[in-house]
Nucleic acid binder design. Structure first.
Lengths: 188, 188
DNA sequence: CCAAAGAGTGAGTGATCGACCACACATACC
DNA sequence: GGTATGTGTGGTCGATCACTCACTCTTTGG
C-alpha cells in the first residue's frame, strides 16, 4: 500500500511559529532576564540547542516574541474597530477596549508586554521593538477611531493601568483601593 | 594629642541605609532578575559577601528597596499636598502630580517601580510589597486630595503612562505618537 | 538508490550566579 | 588590658546560565 507518507519533522518555519506562540507563556511570568532558553525550549517541545538553530540569540528570540505580541494586539484592535463600524470615536474606542479585554483575558500577552517595557530600559534592541510597536499601535488607534490626542492618550493610560492590575493580581484582593483602580475595567 | 577618635566602621544600620539608597540605581536598569548582588555591592561600596550579612537574600533585599521607593514616593506626594493647602481635589492632585514629576526627574525610582511590578508576577514576596505600597498610596491620594474614584484612578493611570514613556525614553523620539502619549505630562 | 540538504539533539563549553564560611580587624565594655 | 561583640572581606561552593559542536536521522530530488 502506497500511503501518502506523513511528514514527521516540521519545517524550520513551522517550528519558529510554534516557538513564538509558546514562548509567550514562558516569558510571561519571569520576563526576559528571568526566563531561561531551556524553559522556552520545553514549552515548544524541542531541545534547547535547537532554539539556537531557529534564533541567533536569546535577545533576538525575545524581540521576535514581542513583535508577535504587538501583531496580535493590533489584530485584536482591528477586530474591535470593525465590529463598531464607522460610529463615533467614543464608540470605536470602547469597542477596541472590549476586544482588547477579551484578548488578554489570558494574561500572558499583557505580561510579556510589561516585561518587554521593563527590559527596554537596558536592552536597545528590545527598546526599539517596543517603540516601533507602540508607534504603530498609537497611530492605528488614532486613525481607526478618529479620536483626538486626549482620547487616544487616555486609551493607552487605561491600558497601562490594566498592566498594573494584572501584575498585582489585584482582582484577587477585595479592598477599596483595588476597586478604585479597577473601576470600569472590563475583565472576561 | 587625644583627638576624638573618628569611627572608621559604619554601623550595620547605616550600611543598610546606604545599600537601600544606592541599590535603586543598581536595580533601575535591569531589574530584579537582571541585576546581580555583585552590582548592588559595588554601588554601595562594600563586598558582595557583606550584602548577605545585611540582607538574608536577594529577594529580601529587593523587597526592602521597593518598600523604600514607596516611602519616598509617598513623602513626595505629601509634600505636594502640603504645598497645595486645602484647596479643591483638582488642585491637590495637580500639586501631587507636580511633586511626583520632580521626584522622578531622575528616572531610577520610576524604573524600580516598573521592574517591581514585573517581578511581582512570579515572586510572591515582591507582589505583596507592591500591593501594600499601592494600597497605602491609593488611600493616601484619595484622602489627601478628597477626589472621587474616577479622579484617583486617572491619577494612577497617568502615572502608569509615565512608566511607559520613561521605559521607552519616548522623550528622545520626536514623532506624532510620542507627542500624543506624553501630552500634558510634566517633565523636569 | 544514493547523495545533498535540512531537522533535531546529547553532551558539553566557560562564565557567572546566589549564597556561604572561615577569618581579620575594629569597637565597646569591664 | 583583655575579651566579647560587631564590621567587613577573600575565597569558594554547587548550580545554572547562554551558547556551541559533533553527530544522527529524515526528507528531497534526480
Amino acid at each position: 500500500m502506497q500511503t501518502e507518507r506523513q511528514r514527521q519533522l516540521s519545517t524550520a518555519e513551522e517550528r519558529r511559529d510554534t516557538v513564538l506562540r509558546t514562548a509567550i507563556g514562558a516569558f510571561a511570568s519571569r520576563g526576559y532576564f528571568g526566563t531561561t532558553t531551556t524553559e522556552v525550549a520545553k514549552a515548544a517541545g524541542i531541545s534547547q540547542a535547537y532554539v539556537y538553530r531557529l534564533f541567533p540569540s536569546k535577545e533576538a528570540l525575545f524581540v521576535a516574541v514581542v513583535e508577535y505580541c504587538f501583531v496580535r494586539v493590533r489584530a485584536s484592535l482591528e477586530g474591535g474597530a470593525a465590529a463598531a463600524g464607522g460610529s463615533s470615536p467614543e464608540a470605536v474606542l470602547s469597542a477596541m477596549g472590549d476586544a482588547y479585554a477579551r484578548l488578554i483575558s489570558d494574561n500572558d500577552l499583557l505580561l510579556v508586554q510589561m516585561h518587554a517595557q521593563a527590559a527596554a530600559v537596558s536592552e536597545p534592541a528590545i527598546r526599539d521593538a517596543v517603540r516601533a510597536g507602540y508607534a504603530r499601535l498609537v497611530e492605528y488607534v488614532r486613525g481607526a477611531s478618529g479620536g483626538d490626542d486626549r482620547q487616544v492618550q487616555e486609551f493607552f493610560a487605561v491600558g497601562m493601568l490594566c498592566h498594573l492590575v494584572a501584575a498585582m493580581d489585584a482582582d484577587k484582593v477585595d479592598a477599596p483601593w483595588t476597586r478604585t483602580l479597577t473601576a470600569g475595567i472590563r475583565h472576561y
